[in-house]
Simulated scan of single mutants.
Amino acid sequence: MNRLQAIRPFGQRLWLDNLSRELIASGELARLLTEDGIAGVTSNPAIFHKAISSDARYREQLAALKTDASLTAEQRYETLVIADIQAACDLTQAQYQASNGADGYVSLEVSPALAHDEAGTVAAAHRLWAAIDRANAMIKIPATAAGIRAFQTLTAAGINVNITLLFSLQQVEAVWDAHIAGLNARHAAGLPLAQGKAVASFFLSRVDSLLDSRLPPAQQGKAAIAMAKMAYQRYLARYHGSEFAALRAAGARPQYLLWASTGTKNAAYSDVMYVAGLIGDETVNTVPDATLALFRDHGEAAATLTQDIAGADATLAAARAAGIDFAAIGEQLQQDGLALFDKAFTELLQLTA
Rank of each mutant, 00 (worst) to 15 (best):
L351P: 05
Y239W: 08
Q307W: 01
G104E: 10
L33N: 02
Y96W: 13
G196P: 00
R57L: 12
P217H: 11
Q332E: 15
H240C: 08
D55V: 10
L210K: 09
A102R: 12
S201A: 14
V122Q: 04
S70I: 03
V81G: 06
A188G: 06
L91M: 12
A137Y: 01
A267R: 14
L333R: 13
Q86L: 03
A200N: 06
D271H: 13
T291G: 06
L128K: 05
G27A: 06
A178L: 08
T315K: 05
P254H: 09
A125D: 10
T262P: 01
F151I: 03
L32T: 01
Q219Y: 08
L166Y: 07
W176F: 09
F345L: 05
S54H: 02
A276M: 01
E74F: 00
A123H: 07
F202E: 07
G323Q: 09
S242Q: 15
Q307A: 15
A185S: 08
L23G: 00
A293P: 00
H187R: 14
V287P: 01
A87I: 03
F48H: 04
Q334G: 05
A137S: 12
A131Q: 14
R320W: 00
A194F: 09
P216E: 12
R234H: 08
G37T: 05
G182S: 07
A198N: 10
Y58P: 02
E74H: 05
A328T: 13
V172I: 14
L210E: 13
S168Y: 13
T144R: 04
A157V: 04
L257T: 02
D281A: 13
M1L: 07
E300M: 01
K66E: 12
T315G: 05
S201F: 10
A303R: 11
W15A: 00
L80S: 04
S213E: 15
G104A: 10
G27W: 02
Q5F: 00
G311D: 10
A39S: 15
G120H: 12
T315S: 03
L80K: 05
I159N: 07
M230D: 01
L128I: 14
Q219P: 00
A245I: 04
G221C: 12
S99V: 10
L348H: 07
V122C: 03
A137C: 14
D342F: 05
A25K: 02
K343Q: 15
K265G: 03
H298T: 09
A143V: 07
H179F: 12
L114P: 07
K222D: 09
T283E: 12
A312Y: 02
G182Q: 03
Q170I: 07
G221F: 11
P142D: 15
T121R: 08
V172F: 01
K265T: 07
Q334C: 05
A6I: 01
L211F: 05
L210M: 14
A310C: 03
N184G: 00
L211G: 01
H126L: 08
I279L: 10
E173N: 10
K140H: 02
S213Q: 15
A226M: 11
A156N: 06
I159H: 10
I180H: 04
Q334D: 01
G251E: 13
K343M: 11
I180Y: 06
I180W: 08
Q152E: 15
G277W: 02
